[in-house]
Amino acid sequence: MFPWVYGFEWNAGTVIFLGLFFTVVIVILTTVTVAVVRSLRAFAQRKHHAVGWEAQFEDLGREARPCRHQLAGETDQRYCRHGFECKDCDFHRKMLDVAEGEAGDAPDRYFHRGHAWVRPETDGTVTIGIDDFGAKVVGPRARAKLPRIGRRIHENGTGWRFLLGDDSVRVLAPVTGEVVAHGGRDEGWYLRVKPLDGPFDLGHLLQGPEVRPWMEHEMARLLRLIPKDCHSDLTRDGRMVDDVTAHCSGLDWDVVCAEILLEP
């Protein structure tokens, strides 16, 4: 195998055969090393949340990732390919150019696809909570495990977790920042987050006219997860019930929440 091993001969056969073998070995090793190094670098640069989200995003079904411009009726069937990171999306930029000048007032709340809402505060921080739809899917039985004050959350990383029994689902963090305050169940589970460098960029979050069609889309998605014979139990007095999964036997809290909160 090596020139110093007894019996080794330098001839064409040996050179070609072992040359190919060592090339293959080097390619395999390099490939694995590249994956390891990239992973380590992602951790060193604190990008592992983004990378982790990218990996999960690939596993989402098409129905879970409609483009915001489709939701707003600005385009036909289109599915997001950028992990909801609209600033990386050429299509989004093009659509912005078209819509330029039409921008109205900044809305009160922005929505992340993982059902977290974001409300900018006057002091430059934001408040983050789970939207009504998400809250009803998770239900009042679940308990939230919020990050401690001083922790950092990362956009598309884990914002916080909901626990019910042995199961847990995470809520995707809509922005990157440091937690400065939080509120418990009575205040409706919220985080107050201050930006790390520079003001928050909320361009990737849904706003204004996009929100309603998105919610309708999400409702349709939820209904698909729920057996037809339960559909009538989901509303009471024209309003959606507070604990969706509790109203239908055999429905898995874990599965429904994960699907709606985009955790494949």
Binding site: V27, A35, V36, S39, A42, F43, V51, E54, A55
Partner: peptide, 18 residues
């Protein structure tokens, strides 16, 4: 475990070589 997911992702990116 975040490390696994990140490694899996990066490995998948170079899978065409393998």
């Amino acid at each position: 475990i975040p490390a696994f997911l990140v490694f899996e992702f990066n490995l998948h990116k170079v899978m065409y070589v393998l």
